[in-house]
């Protein structure tokens, strides 16, 4: 086979390769459309499956409406006008740093009956945390606390 023929073959094959890549791109587009794969869903792998204890904790977090004020994943962000905590309901994803387990239990059971005001002369903050003393069993409290501690963002653990 002469060099000219070989060069010609390389050119033809380059075109076939390009055609194959375009065909696979089209196939991928059609498949995503058919299966309704949401745009950007590939950005991260599915969330880590939770242990039974953490799953139970998450369920309590949702059912007892902690989620409504402290936000998904305890990230906070709900506005609470004139509250001392930056006029927002405080996030919970760093409770592992500021509280011991007995302190957390006490906090959940008693809640925050009077929300401290940012401006003493201003109005009462509209949101305050209720106490859950008689509403949660010890096991439920333990699961909820385990879940709250697990919310600490990954990569922020201390040590190597």
């Amino acid at each position: 086979m002469s060099v000219i023929t070989q060069k010609f073959l390389v050119g033809i094959m380059g075109l076939v390769l390009l055609g194959s890549i375009i065909a696979t791109g089209y196939l991928d587009f059609q498949r995503r459309k058919k299966e309704n794969v949401p745009h950007g869903s590939e950005a991260s792998a599915p969330a880590l499956p939770l242990s039974p204890e953490l799953q139970s904790g998450l369920k309590i977090y949702e059912e007892f409406s902690c989620l409504a004020c402290h936000g998904p994943g305890g990230k906070g962000g709900v506005h609470n006008f004139n509250s001392q905590s930056g006029q927002e309901v405080p996030p919970l994803n760093h409770v592992a740093d500021g509280y011991t387990k007995p302190e957390l239990i006490a906090k959940i059971q008693t809640g925050v009956p009077v929300e401290p005001k940012l401006d003493p002369n201003g109005p009462e903050p509209p949101l305050r945390m209720p106490g859950f003393k008689d509403m949660l069993s010890d096991a439920q409290l333990n699961d909820l606390i385990a879940y709250l501690i697990s919310l600490k963002p990954k990569g922020e653990e201390s040590g190597f």
Partner: peptide, 20 residues
Amino acid sequence: PDHMLRETIVGLLLLIALIN
């Protein structure tokens, strides 16, 4: 270019076969 072209043809052929 002789042998290099031959190897390129084989490489392209494999890639096309793999994709398809």
